[in-house]
Design a protein around this nucleic acid. Sequence first.
DNA 1: CGATTTTTTTTGAGGCTTGAATTAATAGCC
DNA 2: GGCTATTAATTCAAGCCTCAAAAAAAATCG
Lengths: 408, 408
Amino acid sequence: MTMVLRSDDMRRRNRLRIIQIVRRGGTVSRGEIAQAAALSPATVSTISAELIAEGVLVARSAETGALPGRGRPSVGLSLNPRFRHAVLLILKIGEVHVAIVDYAGSLIARQPFDLDMAGVSMEEFRRTLITEIRQTLEANGISAAQLGGISIGVQGTTDSAGLRLLRSPMTPHTNIPMADWLEEEFGAPTRLANDCDLIARALNWRDPERYCDNFAAILLAHGVGMGLFLRGRIINGTQSSGTEFGHMLHQAGGALCRCGARGCIEAAAGDYAILRHFRGDPPDLKPDRHVEPSEIVWIADAARNGDPLAIDSFAAAGRALGSGLAGLFALVDPFRVAFAGHGAAAFDLMEPALREVLRNSNAAAAQEIPIDLFVDDMPLILDGCGIGALAEIDATQADRVWETMRNG
Amino acid sequence: MTMVLRSDDMRRRNRLRIIQIVRRGGTVSRGEIAQAAALSPATVSTISAELIAEGVLVARSAETGALPGRGRPSVGLSLNPRFRHAVLLILKIGEVHVAIVDYAGSLIARQPFDLDMAGVSMEEFRRTLITEIRQTLEANGISAAQLGGISIGVQGTTDSAGLRLLRSPMTPHTNIPMADWLEEEFGAPTRLANDCDLIARALNWRDPERYCDNFAAILLAHGVGMGLFLRGRIINGTQSSGTEFGHMLHQAGGALCRCGARGCIEAAAGDYAILRHFRGDPPDLKPDRHVEPSEIVWIADAARNGDPLAIDSFAAAGRALGSGLAGLFALVDPFRVAFAGHGAAAFDLMEPALREVLRNSNAAAAQEIPIDLFVDDMPLILDGCGIGALAEIDATQADRVWETMRNG
DNA sequence: CGATTTTTTTTGAGGCTTGAATTAATAGCC
DNA sequence: GGCTATTAATTCAAGCCTCAAAAAAAATCG
């Protein structure tokens, strides 16, 4: 019979639920799963046997001893790290990181290499990516069959489906079909995501208590980006990914932004804006294409030593960020904010101005919002990228693989 | 056996799906339902028999003849209008509308009455509502058993759950537990919703093609509110309902708003703001508590006759609205906007300034957004309120009512 | 009036989940 | 060491649910 529709639907959901519980819990006994999933022990037993047979889960090999209890000891189930692997690709200005995570989420390889996307053709870019991924896979002995997916974190906007890089400060090329490239080459599902969204996802994964329903991750780097969660769901553009917080208007006719407009938040709070302000350059000076993070550190030091221009540079950045946040807080009430990226190292210099703007804003209680700092954004981006790739594989795996039912 | 968990879950979903298909389609045959729901005819037959036995659906009583085909004629199923009724309560400044809809969505009664919420105590307010609702129910012969729910549309913000009116321009009272009042009194589930959200919901219901994933409804009246859909879901505040578009900052240190802050969008685009501007009153003059819509019409006529101050009043309003929209468009890409309320009758006077602001904004293609006008907001609010109440009843009805299985 | 056509219902089978019973695996105690 | 108590996991029979196929129903057409 071909009845594979409604009934299997239930099974699919329960399989996925069990996988997710194990992913979240690390090592979980069947009984604990049953409780967490609100399923009967019988069902969990059946499904977990299936998942073990398919190689998705593994049962504890009888160590991890010293259990307190008296009766039959419970057997911990965990994700089989070797079931699948995912390739993570993090694109930054001038460099690319290739990483591999196993199915349990451990980073088993990470390889950065220089690549100036601005200076190469699309074809060259494509080939370089493929070569580097292939090399990393081979160096770690990952076969094509083991590759469950590729996840890419980028600066810039992608299409809604996460298949194309529409535009990015990293390159003058637009509408780059990166997912198609890699899916064709490696035969594994590939998705792009905005780096700020990945940071937000990583925070949500790492600390679901703190970063649950409503919060934003703001990346302070050369530009300014935001990943926004409202009511537990990530908010994206209607046509594209990412919320373009950095290009909301801060000041009409204000400083020149990388995007060509004037008065964007980024044009006051991005690295180049702080540097431009500190140098005393005119606000309509064309933004630098790249600023060494060390320069920002240097300006921050100057500010901490009392340099008035440096102090004012960061205050201006704080005001811009505050004004953008005030707008959002007016719209949807205040929420928790995490600042990430090397700019967060100078957040103490921006915070007074930012809080001042919030205090004077229309949103009640906006000045009270909790703010967290994560200076090193790379671990978060990798984390978020990995979570996304693995969740995708999990979803695939919810559909039962019939062929594994062959012999024994 | 008490096994009522997983298996029934599937049935519940399919019941709900069928009810929703009939609600959307009006009169639908079993075969059409099967196709729309991607269920087998057998399943639809079983479930619809159940629903008919429970009184949720009714089969066409064999008129509506003149079917073209040859074989057995299909039997149209439709919602049983008499299955349940819902009370709708629309609160406006100075007046309340009580309405009753039947289960099929027809408005079967509507009664406005004057009530100055600002001038009465909470207790008095409660009693008046209950009295009016009771009268309307009795006048239409609706028993308590037939009352499936109460839905309330309000200006102002409610809590996330839709149980309390947190604050509203209609009254100085705050945190009014309206849902508790009426649930206690009438024994029917009661929910509050912001009027702008209701307008957005109504548009989405009426024309799902046009108002589908991303759009906003902006209510132009004494104040300015917004109901926002992103990715097909309504966006609300993190602590409260409604997106407070009207209180986003338009101009730092600008005109005085009803909310006490300065420079809100509403303080330039609300009725009182237009009137204040036209009169030449200082922008920090305390806003009027009420402005007759006819005054706005009068000013609009003046503008159309060339009065420069009137023209400028509406231009200022258009600029404020444009600046708020530009901010949102920068954040999440441009989307379709519907303006509702009597202020929309003067939209032609605001549109040039609004489009001008968008044209100069950072959001690409923002000037191209389609804008629709709905001068009469009341039908939309009633519609949205009714849809919401009925959807709630549908969801309840998805759980099978066992007692109806008694005899025959 | 019977043949044809289209819709709906009935029937039997397969899947899924569940509570209860059963089996498995360990610690404690004499 | 052997027995009992205890807890975890599996097995089993039953109840739902959906589905495909067959049967029935209700028209039209010739």
